[in-house]
Simulated scan of single mutants.
Amino acid sequence: MAEPGELQVVVAYATAQHEFVRPLRVTPGTTVGEAIERSGVLASFPDINLVTQPVGIYGKKKALDTVLRERDRIEIYRPLVADPKDSRRKRAAKKQSTQAPAA
């Protein structure tokens, strides 16, 4: 439980092989960027580049200078491996080609 005057937040990052979820207690006025630095995720995953990788709170992109609120979940996003639109088109084409013609 957070001490009076502190906020409880979580910093999360995941790769295909690893998951990083770290609860933190921060003072009011702490920003997303400051919490990420305090969490240790940058030491655990040195390939994270906060200049190019977007971050967010509960799935909504936010700037690094966004001030945190109680129970915020800070997420660091990775680039997509595949374009979701292309993947859907490929699945649809495959499904269409495997369906038997109607008699």
Score class of each variant (00 low, 15 high):
residue 88 R to M: 14
residue 25 R to N: 11
residue 39 S to E: 14
residue 63 A to N: 02
residue 17 Q to L: 01
residue 2 A to S: 02
residue 87 S to I: 12
residue 18 H to V: 13
residue 35 A to T: 01
residue 68 L to C: 07
residue 54 P to D: 03
residue 73 R to W: 03
residue 21 V to Q: 11
residue 91 R to P: 06
residue 93 A to Y: 05
residue 17 Q to K: 00
residue 11 V to I: 00
residue 89 R to K: 08
residue 98 T to R: 10
residue 86 D to I: 08
residue 101 P to D: 08
residue 6 E to K: 06
residue 83 D to S: 08
residue 50 L to Y: 15
residue 44 S to G: 04
residue 83 D to V: 06
residue 73 R to M: 05
residue 77 Y to C: 04
residue 12 A to S: 01
residue 47 D to C: 10
residue 75 E to L: 04
residue 76 I to E: 15
residue 3 E to P: 12
residue 66 T to V: 02
residue 93 A to K: 13
residue 76 I to M: 15
residue 91 R to K: 12
residue 2 A to R: 07
residue 89 R to S: 14
residue 51 V to G: 15
residue 92 A to I: 03
residue 22 R to W: 06
residue 65 D to T: 00
residue 6 E to H: 00
residue 102 A to H: 08
residue 61 K to I: 08
residue 96 Q to N: 05
residue 89 R to F: 13
residue 43 A to P: 06
residue 94 K to S: 10
residue 69 R to D: 14
residue 51 V to K: 06
residue 39 S to D: 08
residue 18 H to N: 13
residue 103 A to L: 08
residue 68 L to T: 01
residue 15 T to H: 02
residue 44 S to D: 14
residue 102 A to Y: 03
residue 36 I to N: 03
residue 75 E to H: 04
residue 15 T to Q: 02
residue 8 Q to Y: 00
residue 24 L to H: 02
residue 102 A to K: 04
residue 53 Q to C: 04
residue 28 P to M: 13
residue 90 K to Y: 14
residue 7 L to F: 01
residue 52 T to W: 13
residue 11 V to S: 09
residue 27 T to P: 07
residue 90 K to F: 15
residue 54 P to G: 14
residue 53 Q to E: 11
residue 9 V to T: 00
residue 82 A to C: 03
residue 38 R to H: 06
residue 89 R to A: 12
residue 66 T to C: 03
residue 89 R to Y: 11
residue 62 K to A: 15
residue 52 T to E: 15
residue 84 P to L: 07
residue 74 I to H: 01
residue 86 D to E: 06
residue 42 L to H: 06
residue 61 K to Q: 10
residue 98 T to D: 10
residue 28 P to N: 09
residue 68 L to N: 09
residue 68 L to E: 03
residue 4 P to G: 11
residue 39 S to G: 15
residue 96 Q to E: 08
residue 95 K to M: 10
residue 70 E to I: 04
residue 59 G to Y: 08
residue 89 R to I: 12
residue 36 I to E: 05
residue 5 G to P: 01
residue 78 R to M: 09
